[in-house]
């Protein structure tokens, strides 16, 4: 990644900004507006320091799902027929609908990549807590982030240990059984870990409240970005009329 021009933004600004921009994008109508949104979101992602190649790699997953739309919508939307495939007929209205959806989803994905994927996930969890998202959900997210990383590291260590003793994987009975043990051991360790964490919390007298550090001040960058986002969103909404 190159320089991130959005770095000074507070995670709260990022969350709210992403939400507003995505809502604006989803309210757009037609491929032309969609294309404009994709271009703008792409620019935002570049400003956040993404390289085009990195963006493309991540967007492939999104577009894979979008491909399903193109397989279904043209054949199920009523309208002017443009193509016959045996008993099936594709309509131009369906194609345009699929294209419009794809562009809006792509723009939304780019917005998420630009604003949210560039910060430490835990900071987003804290920002959610400060924005008064339900405490249980925030806790769940934070604990998954905290211990997901630990479990991944444990799994990696076990796999490395297996490789260090000459394990190569594959599809033999031995390999499959070993994978089974690996999966089982990861689960067992996760459960034991969960028990110990719970005990640790009980020993420090946990009663359901989690501390959330006082938020940082919102700065000039947040104000400027917020104003820009609001203006864009308004423009999008007015544009529809």
């Amino acid at each position: 990644m190159s320089r991130d021009l959005l770095a000074p933004l507070d995670p709260r600004t990022r969350l709210l900004g992403a939400l507003a921009l995505i809502l604006a994008v989803l309210s757009l109508d037609g491929p032309a507006a969609g294309l404009l949104a994709v271009a703008a979101a792409f620019g935002l992602a570049l400003a956040a320091g993404w390289r085009p190649a990195g963006l493309a790699r991540r967007l492939v997953h999104v577009e894979g799902i979008m491909a399903a739309l193109f397989l279904v919508l043209p054949f199920t939307t009523p309208g002017t027929t443009v193509l016959h495939l045996g008993p099936l007929t594709a309509t131009s209205d369906g194609l345009l609908l699929a294209l419009g959806l794809m562009l809006r989803v792509t723009a939304s994905a780019l917005i998420v990549l630009a604003l949210l994927a560039t910060v430490e996930p835990i900071r987003l969890g804290q920002a959610l807590a400060r924005l008064r998202t339900p405490v249980r959900l925030v806790q769940l997210l934070l604990l998954v982030l905290r211990y997901g990383a630990l479990l991944r590291a444990e799994l990696r260590r076990m796999r490395e240990a297996a490789r260090a003793r000459g394990f190569r994987g594959g599809l033999s009975i031995h390999a499959l059984r070993s994978f089974g043990w690996l999966a089982g051991m990861t689960l067992v360790r996760a459960l034991e870990r969960a028990e110990r964490v719970e005990e640790g919390m009980r020993l420090r007298l946990w009663q359901g409240a989690l501390p959330v550090a006082a938020p940082g001040r919102l700065g000039r960058a947040d104000a400027a970005f917020g104003t820009g986002v609001l203006a864009l969103a308004l423009l999008a909404v007015i544009g529809i009329r």
Binding site: G125, R146, G200, L210, A213
Partner: peptide, 19 residues
């Protein structure tokens, strides 16, 4: 790792006093 479950250090250290 069994003891530190809060996102940041200051939050984890504040956990006990809060309780």
């Amino acid at each position: 790792d069994d003891q530190l479950f809060c996102p940041t250090v200051q939050e984890d250290v504040a956990f006990g006093p809060l309780n």
